[in-house]
Amino acid sequence: MALIEFSNRGLYCPPGDFYIDPWKPVNKAVITHAHSDHARPGSAYYLCHHLTKPLLQARLGDNNYESSGWHEPISINGVKLSLHPAGHIIGSSQVRVEYNNEVWVVSGDYKTENDGISGAFEPVKCHVFITESTFGLPIYTWKKQEAIYSDIRQWIMYNKAQKKTSVLIAYSLGKAQRVLNAIAPLNETVYLHGAIYNMHQALLSAGLQLPAVERITPDTPKEKLRSAIVIAPPSADGTPWMKRFNPYSVGVCSGWMQVRGNVRRRNVDAGFVLSDHADWNGLLSAVKATGAEKVYVTHGFQSAFSRYLNEQGLWSAEVKTEYGGEEETDETIIKEEA
C-alpha cells in the first residue's frame, strides 16, 4: 500500500488516516500553507506551522487548530510526521511522512530562492517526492530577486519623475510583503489596498516584522496619493477603485509576466517577473536534492515535467489535483498565484 494516496478529497495517508491540503472537508487535515487552494474550510482538525495558524484563523475563522515548528516530529496513528521550510510564503512547509522505514515528502508550493521572509527552502531526503510544477517548463527561469527589486525601484522613481502614482499589483499573502521589502530602501510611505492591509495586520499579530504602511480609505486625500507608491491585489486592477490615483502606472508582480503575451493581455504598463514558486532550474535542483526514486508531479505543468523526469531516467507520474494548475486561466492564477 502506498503511504500517500491520491483520493478525490486530496492527498491521503491511509496508515495515519489524515489528509494533506484536502479540497473537501475531512477529519484530519495537515496544511502546507495558507493560500486558499491549499487551506480550505470545513475540516474538523487542522495541523500546520506556527506561522500559518494565525493566517488560517484570519481566513477560515475559529476551528480546531494545532501548530508545530519545523523539524518537530509528531506521531499520528504511528505515522511520523514533520514540517520543513518550503520557502513559498510565510509559514509554508513541506510535509515529511515516515512509516515502516519509508519516507514520503509532499512539497506543497515552494521556491528555492530565499526571500528573507518565508524561511529558506530545505531539501528533505525521501523515497517518494510529491512536487508542485506551477512553472515546470524551461521557459521559466527567474532573475535574481535583487535584480527584480532594483527594476521595481527604478520603475517607481521613473513614475515619480513623471508625476505618476505607481500601483503595484501583488497577491496579498506572500507577494505583497516581498514587494514591501523591495521598496523599503526608498524610504517612502507605502499605501495599501484594504485587502492587503488586513493581511498585513494578521501578519503583524503573528509576530512578523514588516515596514510601516498606510491604509487607503475613501477618506484618504487624493493629494497624498499623488506620485505615491500603492500595493493592490489583482482583483482591484481595472476597477473604478483605481481612478483615485490618476495619473498612474500599473506594474504586475507575477511569474506569469515572463511571457510577453500575458503582459499585453493584462494591459498593464509593466510586468515584473517575481514569483513565489520555483523556476525550472529550482524544480530540477529540488527534485535532485531529495534523492527520491519516485516523483509525483502536481499543480501546474505536471505532464511535461513528469515526462521530462522520466526521460532523464527518474520514475515519475503526473497526478491531477485541485490546486492551481491546468484548469485555471492565467487570469485567475494571477488573482491567486497560490
Binding site: 517548463l137 524551461p138 521557459i139 527561469t141 515572463q258 511571457v259 510577453r260 503575451g261 505543468f301 511535461a304 515526462r307 521530462y308 526521460e311
Partner: peptide, 22 residues
C-alpha cells in the same frame, strides 16, 4: 527534446519569444 520545445511554444505562442526564453 523537441517535444519540450513544442510544449513551450504552445504556452508562449510566439516562436521568436520561445527561443529567446529558452
Amino acid at each position: 527534446p523537441v517535444w519540450m520545445f513544442e510544449e513551450c511554444y504552445h504556452t508562449v505562442g510566439d516562436l521568436a519569444e520561445t527561443i529567446a526564453l529558452l
